[in-house]
């Protein structure tokens, strides 16, 4: 094979690709925020005294965890308009990412709450603190610390999953690279470069998470 690599289309498309990285970040961060909201809400419902509510949450979590994101995003993409909600692909993708990440977040947060011993709660109550104070001042930080590693790896995964949003043409790195690829036919060059971009993106995300952790969770544990 006498194929010579030619990165010219990639270099020409660089500004577009860099902007698209911002799109990927936006999808990832909005998706994470929505996932956290769904996660916390889900955990609260999961502990409801009403059995049907608990089952609803369990069913939701298992449904999401046992089907591919690609199928989920297609489903949501077609379902929203039928429900009378007309959204652009990008917000649709954020909703899909949030729902997907939320299901995993529910399981992770639940584990964190369970990891806090009952004694911590009781010690706070015995000191005359209210339940809300106990949760905010005593439970929250150790619980967050306990789930932080799994939460961050889940969020890195969510960041990488944004590439699947290209299937509904949301604005992010993969869909932009597909456009450059189909214009130039320099498939390998484009995708190789973009893969490197993703590597940098996930590395940056990891550094941010680690930085936050070293600031916020600096207390020693046994």
């Amino acid at each position: 094979m006498n194929y010579t690599l030619d990165f010219t289309p990639v270099i020409d498309g660089l500004p577009n690709l860099l902007w698209a990285c911002l799109g990927t970040f936006t999808l990832a961060i909005c998706g994470m925020l929505l996932a956290i909201v769904i996660g916390i809400g889900g955990v609260i419902l999961r502990q409801s005294p009403l059995k049907p509510l608990r089952w609803l949450v369990i069913g939701f979590v298992e449904l999401i965890r046992n089907t591919p994101f690609l199928v989920q995003i297609f489903f949501i993409y077609f379902a929203l308009p039928l429900a009378g909600i007309r959204l652009d692909p990008t917000p649709t993708a954020i909703i899909a990412l949030g729902i997907n990440g939320g299901a995993y977040a529910i399981e992770i947060i639940r584990g964190g709450v369970q990891s806090i011993s009952k004694g911590q709660m009781e010690a706070g109550l015995a000191l005359g603190l209210h339940k809300a104070q106990v949760f905010r001042l005593i439970i929250l930080k150790p619980a967050l610390r306990a789930i932080y590693p799994s939460l961050t790896s889940q969020f890195i995964l969510l960041t990488l999953t944004t590439s699947i949003a290209s299937a509904i043409s949301a604005y992010e790195l993969t869909s932009v690279s597909q456009r450059i690829e189909s214009d130039s036919f320099r498939s390998f060059e484009v995708y190789f470069t973009v893969t490197a971009f993703y590597l940098v993106i996930s590395w940056v995300m990891m550094r941010i998470f680690a930085l936050f952790s070293s600031r916020y969770f600096s207390y020693p544990v046994r």
């Binding site: 990488l160 999953t161 993969t174 993703y198 590597l199």
Partner: peptide, 8 residues
């Protein structure tokens, strides 16, 4: 682990 499966 740091790149999307789709890109791989």
């Amino acid at each position: 682990q740091g790149t999307p499966l789709l890109m791989q």
